[in-house]
Nucleic acid binder design. Structure first.
Lengths: 168, 168
DNA sequence: AAATGCAACGTTATAATGTTGCATTTAATC
DNA sequence: GATTAAATGCAACATTATAACGTTGCATTT
């Protein structure tokens, strides 16, 4: 496929802020799924592309609308939710629980739970990775004998850009 | 009021797991609101009581149902949501974002964001406080110039009791 | 090629969660 | 008691998510 001709480059920078070109990210997703024997179908890929292009956490129904505009063939909510479920299961997308919205994951090649900073002003979300945070949570879990399977860490506030632009 | 005759005792144990009697917690809530000039009305108090009695994160519509059974007068969703909004604003209740459910806060007398461990098996949530975690998040926020206003930390998994009971 | 199996996708309806706007009641203040 | 702000009641609505059932397309077997 054409998109596979773009060389996927796993990013190894733990301080990376996820500034990668959408096309590059989609290509990486394809190569990852290929390696795993998972099917990143046309629809799933399109949804992943839309998420990358959106640049902020996007609701499932926004995706339904976006697909209507983009394609002749409209899709229903269940279809979008199923695609999201797949993308999440592959670590390609995360759900922002505090917003009921979905965001592509900058580093699907690494197995990790992300830390999200979500701007109340502009709606943008910044993804970060912090091993120490995961360690601390594991420690607290151990303290109460809890076996953790998923970590949700979401911080709401104002992003640097909006602070600079004078947004309270 | 009768409930105020129960002496509220702010708990100062940072490792406390929140094992306090519901009545004691409600009494503390009343004294806190009183001191702040906030009105913990009958309805709001009843909802707080229901949350304490429930023992696990409880949905808004479950509260609507519970109030129907408990009282002659049924209340609608907006009423419950508004009461929850008040309780949250006073730090008496937290929303568990990953469940769309609400849980009373064990230590409303301290200003802090909580860390929740939610059991996928039994639905119980354990509230913890970890200053170090808040510190790390602040540090990461500073790194990207983000001004945080709210922290959501929710860990899904299996609680000690369910592990002991043989639940996978 | 016909039959079979299976994963993904489509369609309709509905459940679950949350909000708006306005009328009414309650309760704090004068 | 009159005034006024806050809280509550209520109907309709908006948003998010899933259930239930059916279809399509492709791979494998017969």
């Amino acid at each position: 496929m054409a998109l596979l001709s773009i060389k996927p480059r796993p990013c190894t920078d733990p301080n990376c802020r996820g500034q990668h070109a959408p096309a590059e990210r989609v290509a990486l997703a394809m190569s990852l799924c290929d390696a795993r024997g998972a099917q990143l179908t046309k629809l799933r890929r399109k949804i992943l592309e839309l998420l990358w292009e959106s640049g902020r956490p996007t609701g499932a129904y926004e995706l339904v609308e976006a697909l209507k505009l983009r394609d002749s063939r409209p899709v229903g909510p269940p279809t979008v939710y199923r695609a999201l479920e797949f993308l999440i299961s592959q670590g390609l997308v995360s759900k922002i629980e505090s917003r009921n919205a979905y965001i592509p994951c900058a580093h699907p090649e690494r197995r990790h739970d992300c830390l999200f900073f979500i701007c109340s002003n502009c709606g943008a979300a910044i993804e970060l990775e912090d091993q120490r945070l995961e360690g601390l949570i594991s420690e607290d879990a151990a303290l109460i004998g809890f076996r953790a399977t998923r970590r949700v860490v979401e911080v709401e506030g104002t992003c640097a850009r909006c602070i600079a632009a004078g947004a309270a």
